[in-house]
């Protein structure tokens, strides 16, 4: 089963902290979204493996845009 990790606010991808194939735990930081002057960590809602990374650093993203897919 895949889990889509979406942005909850518009902003810019500041840093991607994982790569495809990485095993992550719940609450691990996946990437940093820069928005509203703040560095906002985007965390894994549950444990899983990184299946796909749909953005790259410096990309502009919108609310609800899928950033990472976990499985």
């Amino acid at each position: 089963m895949s889990v889509n990790i979406a942005s909850h606010m518009p902003g810019t991808i500041a840093e991607i902290l994982v790569k495809v194939g990485d095993q992550v735990q719940a609450d691990d930081e996946l990437l940093i979204l820069e928005s509203m002057k703040m560095e906002n960590p985007i965390c894994a809602p549950s444990a899983g493996k990184v299946k796909e990374i749909k953005v790259k650093e410096k990309d502009k993203v919108d609310t609800n845009q899928v950033l990472i897919v976990l499985e």
Partner: peptide
């Protein structure tokens, strides 16, 4: 996954 490449969790960080 080896110990060296294990990513630290948010709590650890």
């Amino acid at each position: 996954m080896t110990e060296e490449t294990r990513r630290i969790t948010r709590a650890e960080r």
